[in-house]
């Protein structure tokens, strides 16, 4: 347990994850569990630059979460933004990370979830958002057995097909490294779901782009190593 400053108060917080840039905490507010994503101060940066970067990234992420929800893609609701401590206070999602869940799921369940992920990613892409870090650790299966995307920290608003293809490529790369045995099933249904939203032509186009990206040297070798 750690004490953190949020919204002019001190809270007991449980550290869930420490990233390169931010720390994820779980707090209780009037008995309700909440997630706090707080971007840390970097001492090497000039204080003014440091604050501006932390603030703009926090606001940017909040905006992405908001738009994601509008597009019909489940993600944590942003409840408060603490501009002083550059923190996002979000809904706590009850459920399990897909990464840990996959080995316990039936093939039919994996197919269903993969189809859903395909649909959601396509919805984001259709709305010109890329998630930026589509790993199975960033997907939570909630109590309604629906998929919830978390961590939009690397996301962006873009209409470039290249960036959308990178999004898919990153997803494929985590599958290859962590869920190799389910790769075929997941990808097949993922693209079925993707095609349902964005159509056959666009899906073919983006697949070509993904292939092009994967043929660039540094990705090929990374993939080889992971397998």
């Amino acid at each position: 347990m750690e004490k953190i400053d949020i919204l002019f108060n001190k809270y007991d917080a449980e550290v869930l994850k420490i990233g390169a840039e931010a720390t994820i905490y779980k707090i209780f507010w009037k008995g309700i569990p909440l997630i706090v994503k707080k971007r840390r101060i970097k001492n090497y940066r000039h204080p003014k630059i440091d604050y501006e970067i932390r603030l703009s990234r926090t606001l940017h992420e909040a905006k992405l979460l908001l738009y994601s929800k509008k597009l019909g893609v489940k993600c944590p609701a942003v409840l408060f933004i603490d501009r002083i401590n550059t923190a996002l206070i979000m809904q706590f999602i009850n459920g399990n990370r897909l990464r840990e869940l996959i080995p316990y799921l039936s093939n039919e369940e994996i197919s269903r979830i993969s189809f859903l992920i395909g649909e959601y990613v396509a919805k984001l892409h259709k709305g010109n958002i890329v998630h930026g870090d589509l790993t199975t650790s960033n997907m939570i299966i909630d109590n309604n057995k629906d998929v919830v995307f978390i961590d939009y920290g690397l996301g962006a608003f873009t209409n470039e097909i290249e960036e959308k293809a990178v999004d898919i490529h990153l997803f494929m790369r985590t599958l290859e490294s962590s869920h190799y045995n389910f790769l075929k099933n997941i990808l097949e249904n993922f693209f079925k779901g993707y095609e349902k939203i964005l159509g056959k032509d666009f899906t073919q186009e983006i697949l070509k782009k993904v292939e092009e990206i994967r043929l660039r040297g540094r990705y090929i070798s990374l993939r080889k190593k992971k397998i």
Partner: peptide, 18 residues
């Protein structure tokens, strides 16, 4: 100076952490 070097330090930090 402050901005460009911060950028360099940040990408190095990311590589180091990853």
């Amino acid at each position: 100076i402050e901005i460009s070097y911060s950028m360099l330090t940040e990408v190095t930090e990311r590589a180091l952490a990853q």
